[in-house]
Design a protein around this nucleic acid. Structure first.
Length: 284
DNA sequence: CGAATTTGACCTGCGC
DNA sequence: GCGCAGGTCAAATTCG
């Protein structure tokens, strides 16, 4: 029927995308915080899921390994439900909210940092999503413009981690890019925060926006969507709609002892700007 | 010359 | 309390 899926050789653990946009739209975006919780240390210290396709630029989702419940991230993304609040928020955790004017006040940013963080306020994290991408280039085209603001060596990895910030004014979205030490051909990109501005239209030609917005409803995306929904229905997942705008559902994996409990997260926040809302809506 | 990147220093959180 | 690792800052440098 119409609902047939053309992902013949892919499992939910190993869905291949042809672009960042498709991956973003696919809802197969994992929650990074859960991974961190699950592994307690660097989230990358887990066995990589083998990538079945060899084409460059393809994306696979993280494997899910007995992840802990999603709830821990709710606090960090509690303001995600209402973008307006977040944008104008004064009570938010320091650094991200003073991007626009942190320079220009009398104090240095370091002094501000000290003061801002001293009052026992627990630093809240923005929701994060991460992708593994098989690519030769570190910087994946996602439609936004980024400025690099730091680079650090990663423990147990010969490859450094680069830190980028969205160049749009007052946009506090960050991303980190690093290579997997287990498979150097894989680039791990982690996004943190949400864009509340349009994709820069002048960036690298008109193809970008068109592609990212998926105006044509790329075949892969649609196929995967159907596959995804079909999967949900077939397995009758309990679906939790969390107040943070994060959707969690779990899967029992019978044939894979390592992957007994899968979580998949739809980060509506991050995706909203890139993906038309209709793509983000999930039937309950 | 302005914008972007590099890179060492600094700060914070966390585990021991 | 200490040390380590992650994350950020900002001066210096490079690039277009």
């Amino acid at each position: 029927m119409d609902d047939q899926v053309d992902h013949k050789n892919t499992s939910l653990d190993e869905v291949i995308f042809t672009s960042v946009a498709d991956c973003l739209q696919s809802s197969l975006v994992m929650d990074y915080n859960s991974l961190e919780k699950a592994f307690k240390f660097s989230p990358y210290n887990y066995p990589c899921q083998p990538i079945s396709a060899s084409n460059m630029g393809q994306i696979v989702n993280y494997p899910y390994l007995n992840l802990t419940p999603i709830s821990p991230i709710v606090s960090s993304s509690s303001n995600e439900a209402d973008p307006k609040e977040n944008v104008g928020d004064k009570s938010g955790p320091m650094e991200n909210h003073n991007d626009g004017d942190q320079h220009g006040v009398g104090e240095t940013s370091k002094q501000l940092t000290k003061q801002g963080k001293g009052k026992g306020e627990k630093k809240e994290r923005e929701a994060r999503v991460a992708f593994m991408t098989k690519s030769e280039v570190d910087q994946l085209e996602d439609g936004y413009r980024w400025r690099k603001y730091g680079q650090k060596a990663v423990k147990n990895s010969p490859y450094p981690r680069s830190y980028y910030r969205c160049t749009a004014q007052k946009c506090n979205v960050k991303k980190r890019v690093e290579r997997s030490f287990q498979d150097p051909s894989i680039v791990i990109t982690t996004y943190e925060g949400k864009h509340y501005h349009p994709i820069p239209s002048t960036l690298r030609g008109p193809m970008v926006g068109e592609h990212l917005l998926g105006h044509h409803g790329s075949g892969i995306l649609h196929s995967f969507k159907r596959y995804h929904q079909q999967f949900l229905m077939k397995n009758q997942h309990p679906v939790n709609y969390q107040s943070a705008g994060t959707v969690t559902y779990q899967q029992r994996h019978g044939d894979s002892s390592n992957y007994s409990n899968h979580q998949q997260v739809v980060d509506c926040g991050l995706l909203q700007d890139i993906v038309p809302s209709k793509f983000l809506k999930h039937e309950s």
